[in-house]
Every structure is written in C-alpha cells, then in structure tokens.
C-alpha cells in the first residue's frame, strides 16, 4: 500500500508498546494515559491511510471524550490501588491467554499473507476522491445519501444511551429521596 513505512512503523511500534502498558500497568490512571497514546498513534495511522475524517474523529471522540470520561470516573471512584492487583491464578490465565492470542495472531497473519486473491477495487480511488472534493466531503455525502437510515438510527441509539445513563446516574438519588420520605 502506498503509505510511508517509516511513519507506519513508528506509530505501530508506539501503539503496541503502549497497549501492553495499558494491560500491564497496575494503576488504572496510568492505563488510561497509555491508552491516550495508543489513540493518538491510531489517529496517525488513519491519516496515513487517507482517512482524514476518521483520524479527526479518533482524536475528538476517543481521546477527547471517551478517555476523559474514563479518567473522570477513575477519579470519581478513587479506589485504592492495592485492590487492583492481579490474582495468582490470573497470571496463569494471562499466560494461557497470551499464548492463545499469539496463536490467533499467527493464524490471522497467515490468512492475511495468503489472502492475495485479486480483489475488485471500488470506485473511490484517491484521484476520484481528490476530484470530488476530498475525503471528508465524499464521506459526508455517503452518510447522508446511501447510509442515511443507519445514520438516523444512530441518533436513536445515542438518545437511548443518554436516557440509560441518566437513569443509572439518578437511581441512587431517587432511592435516597424515598428513604428520606420514609
């Protein structure tokens, strides 16, 4: 693929390193900050792959919204760190899991390597996209034409999530109020 190998390997290496940190770090807050680095690296890879809108969304939503939410909750709960230790049995599981995951990666890599069957390229070559006004414009037009129904359904999903969060967050308050009433 026509991407710069230097940048890709830097970003990929950073991602792998910091995702390992995410899962191995004992402190939740450290995990969260490692995750932030992974998100940024991913945004870089997206940009390399000409997915400019996705790269922007990655930074805005993952790094800007989701991760902030995580950090916010971690600070809100403020649980002491000692209880976050892995258990002894868990390490054995981890070894097994790592082996299993390695097996999966190996299998998938084999698939990806051998999967060089001639694939029919779609209409969105870089030249076409450039001519039509760039990645963001083309993607937006797609969203509002071909994918308009899922797009609208997404709004319903978000609404449901909002209501759900509100219910979860307010439940304790309501219980407390009913207790006071008694």
């Amino acid at each position: 693929m026509n991407i710069s190998p230097g940048f890709f390997y830097v970003f990929a290496g950073t991602s792998i390193l910091f995702s390992l940190l995410v899962i191995l770090n004992r402190s939740a807050i450290a995990s969260a900050f490692s995750l932030l680095v992974v998100f940024f690296s991913f945004a870089g890879i997206y940009a390399l792959l000409d997915a400019h809108l996705v790269a922007a969304l990655q930074v805005l939503i993952y790094a800007g919204a989701i991760l902030v939410l995580f950090i916010f909750v971690i600070m809100l709960l403020n649980v002491e760190q000692a209880s976050f230790d892995y258990k002894r049995g868990r390490i054995l599981t981890g070894v097994f899991a790592a082996f299993g995951a390695f097996g999966m990666v190996f299998l998938l890599g084999r698939v990806f390597r051998s999967g060089s069957a001639p694939l029919q390229p779609g209409p969105f070559s870089p030249e076409n996209i450039q001519a039509a006004g760039g990645n963001t414009r083309v993607l937006s037009e797609l969203l509002f034409s071909e994918y308009v129904l899922p797009f609208e359904l997404t709004s319903v999903l978000l609404l449901a999530a909002i209501i759900g969060s509100v219910v979860l967050a307010k439940r304790g308050v309501i219980e407390k109020k009913s207790k006071e009433a008694k």
Binding site: T93, A97, M104, L107, R110
Partner: peptide, 20 residues
C-alpha cells in the same frame, strides 16, 4: 465474565484452526 471470554477465545482458536 473473564473465564467466559477465555472459553470463547479457545472456541475461536479451535474453529479457526479447523477452518484453516
């Protein structure tokens, strides 16, 4: 939940290995 997830992983591994 994590044990369940592990079992799922084993299942996927076996299935993928069989398919390949």
């Amino acid at each position: 939940i994590q044990v369940y997830a592990f079992v799922i992983l084993v299942g996927i591994l076996v299935t993928a290995g069989y398919l390949l």
